[in-house]
Design a protein around this nucleic acid. Sequence first.
RNA 1: GGGCGUGUUCCCGAGUGGCCAAAGGGGGCAGACUGUAAAUCUGUUGCGUUUCGCUUCGGUGGUCCGAAUCCACCCGCGCCCA
Length: 400
Amino acid sequence: MELYDELVARGLIAQVTDEQEIKKMINAGKATFYIGFDPTADSLHVGHFMALCLMKRLQMAGNKPIALLGGGTGMIGDPSGKSDMRKMLTKEDIDHNIECFKKQMSRFIDFSEGKAIMVNNADWLLDLNYIEVLREVGACFSVNKMLTFECYKQRMERGLTFLEFNYMIMQSYDFYMLYQKYGCNMQFGGDDQWANMLGGTELIRKKLGKDAHAMTITLLLNSEGKKMGKTEKGAVWLDPNKTSPFEFFQYWRNIADADVMKCIRMLTFLPMEQIEEMSAWEGSELNKAKEILAYELTKLVHGEEEADKALEGAKSLFGGRGNTDNMPTVKVELTDGKIGILDLLVNTKLAPSKREARNLVSGKGIAVDDVIIEDANAQIEINGEIILRKGKKVFLKVVV
RNA sequence: GGGCGUGUUCCCGAGUGGCCAAAGGGGGCAGACUGUAAAUCUGUUGCGUUUCGCUUCGGUGGUCCGAAUCCACCCGCGCCCA
């Protein structure tokens, strides 16, 4: 199967500017394309991961990727599809985040020998002259038109600042610069970026009279229409220090039935034939698919060794065996060999406060070495290690 | 700059002087049932040394025995006018 058809079959493509042209170009490995990453946090997340995978797929077919770090656009903040303005990042935050991004990216994409390049739009955006930009670029944008864009809809109701309104212009300018500097003829991005990306193709047409293309990646939504890769506590990060490989594994292992196959198709590199076979699975059989999904993704993000560990750890916990080697571990300080259960829960961050710890205990949600603790005043003795469990899925090995 | 609104706990949203740690819903967490799924039902959801105490309703300062609720000033946000 050719690349473009595979991307379609995997459900990765949301919108394209010129399907025939793009298909021809990427199948032939003729595209030089870019994807922008704004340094909004100190780690990449699942959405970035999808973009990087797409980058990899295209790179494997001979196309040349440009990873654009948003050192300049990060100073503004993209309002697309957001209901509120984000907190403004400081220059220091942005620089730090960029360093974190760089490290993580080179794990996925081969930047050696010019196979891919990494650039930072701070290099050209930060020194722009206001009046010059207004005359040169601002004149190409219609405010009337911009105000009608769907991506600003929520902000038209709740307020959009001039700062953010300019984001689109800066992103368009990026594409225009990359076209001239590197012959970049295509841009990829999340589907929420569509308007921003078209801004770039139009700017290139107006200023240079040339055609450039844009293609968006389907946003990964769950069956309830919410963005995937988010938990109550925040994003699922690729940085093992922010989301441990075990937690990462568990996130995908616990995915809803309705979403498994979609995720396997969109996120893994398993061959399409194998995926076709799996798509016939139903009911509890799907449970196996979840394990495959979790393993494959953990392997891609954290490497085979970590994936094996996570799989082992999960199996032993849920399969009833007692292998605790790979369980997340926390060390606690004891006074005279024991600790109150409430303090233990708070110290291990299983409960945010003693109040909640108490509620968990009285709701029979806490077990030590598989024995449910019912007394909130219980003193737990720890010699060596114990297994602390909250609910059914949260396990912690506690050592002294 | 002027006018009119508005700001409540994770979110939406009730509350306009004591019965308010604050209705209801959503979300979260836990229990039952299950396949580490979904749906459903139950409990819980500010903090603590828990029949009680403490801190909270944009901020500060007042009035009052008593303030989320009244007053003054300030700040944020929205709409209209400029």
